[in-house]
Design a protein around this nucleic acid. Structure first.
Lengths: 235, 235
DNA sequence: ACCTGAACACCGTTCAAGT
DNA sequence: ACCTGAACACCGTTCAAGT
């Protein structure tokens, strides 16, 4: 929000790379920050994709030399961690304060899958990053945990439930990016008749294959969670 | 199996890199092949990990110049595709001809997860690679499809069922590689009390957290599959 | 056909010099 | 403290020359 001071030599807006050169030495106003770097990274990825996301392209978008980034970041990996935690804020957890628990989980899960289908390279990072270093991610877990606890899921099963849901969501995000025709077996019915028949027998009216599979798995996990619920002793 | 001809200048065994130089020009016996390249890649990865797997390290293990690989391979990506299809042969599908359908799915799923927990970088490739180009992968799908069909899972649900299982398995393979303490919230109980309590309330006696979550999700998917089964009209 | 060796266009990262 | 610009040690890949 607070951005773009007119004092800087016009290249420091971070949005246009056409501005004039800045000469060496510390500028009077800071040109970079975690917020600006994260936003620029998101823009580069949104416009050119992850394949084109390099420290160079990031620096270019910020109108800065690549080496300047290392005053704010220890590695490209750290930029990706910042990105991961930021992207988590795009996941819709609004249901947990407004809807029945199962509708809330569904809304969250679909949104989570969709967000990370657009950020597949960040998935291995979430799966491994300690939550202590990812405040937005932790906030999301807290919302889900509150929802499940309120629904009566036993305390000991909340984390396994979330982890199982999350694993399914990440795998499904990957699957959602696959071309629709990966299972086209062409003339392979000779070697794999049953699988070939199963591919043909899919019901294409119920949605994209990836969506049908996601609904199936999500229903399964919700049913399992439902069966673990216990009536609250209080209230 | 058919390997190591004594005619070659002793560097051509592909197992030791200490042998003497081979001079330029086509050798009398082929030094490289898909099989040798795949095996060498697997060795490099097994010994040094994916981080050290480069075209250079692969060539070194084969006692060959990096550029020689490009006579057999169009890109590093293709080596990874070969690797992916080869690794699939390590997944245990033996249950589908010997056990009840649910025990077979369980054996397959645990084995599938374990195999790819050791080959995480291959996961994005499986998820996107057309099965037509991956014969071993296709063979695996065929086995699973036969198992589910024999169990009475409706034809239209076989592919969604497999995709849902596979998505869950891939996400869980990722999760299984995470350090056990990612959820350690240290002194964060102030900002996320419910989640922190849920982490503490996990039952550590029932196995590794990743295993508990995997069992939970697998049970869920199996129960959902079970509920779709119909008695066969024949037999 | 299939190897070597030199070369190319990158990559992430480091560091001295400048303000 | 924080920028630029030069430099470093890689990377995957191409290609001419050799047999």
């Amino acid at each position: 929000m607070a951005d773009g001071s007119p004092a800087a030599p016009s290249a420091a807006t971070g949005q246009e790379s056409a501005g004039r050169q800045r000469r060496a030495g510390r500028p009077h106003e800071n040109v970079l920050s975690r917020k600006l770097i994260t936003e620029a990274a998101l823009t580069v990825i949104g416009v050119e994709g992850y394949g084109a996301f390099t420290m160079s392209s990031l620096a270019r978008r910020l109108s800065v030399a690549p080496s300047a980034l290392y005053n704010h970041v220890t590695s490209k990996q750290e930029v990706l961690r910042w990105l991961q935690d930021h992207v988590m804020t795009q996941v819709d957890v609004s249901g947990f304060t407004a809807e029945p628990w199962d509708a809330a989980v569904r809304r969250w899960a679909w949104s989570y899958r969709d967000v990370f289908a657009g950020h597949v390279p960040l998935i291995p990072i979430v799966a491994v990053l300690p939550v202590a270093g990812a405040p937005e991610t932790l906030k999301m877990y807290e919302k889900v945990a509150v929802g499940l606890a309120a629904a009566g899921v036993p305390a000991a099963l909340i984390v396994p439930g979330i982890v199982a849901l999350e694993s399914f969501i990440f795998g499904s995000a990957l699957d959602a990016t696959a071309p629709a025709d990966i299972f086209d077996t062409a003339d392979l019915s000779g070697t794999s008749p049953t699988f070939t028949a199963a591919v043909a027998a899919q019901d294409r009216d119920t949605g994209e294959p990836a969506d049908v599979a996601f609904r199936f798995g999500l229903d399964a996990l919700l049913a399992q969670l439902d069966s673990t619920r216990q009536k609250a002793s209080a209230d």
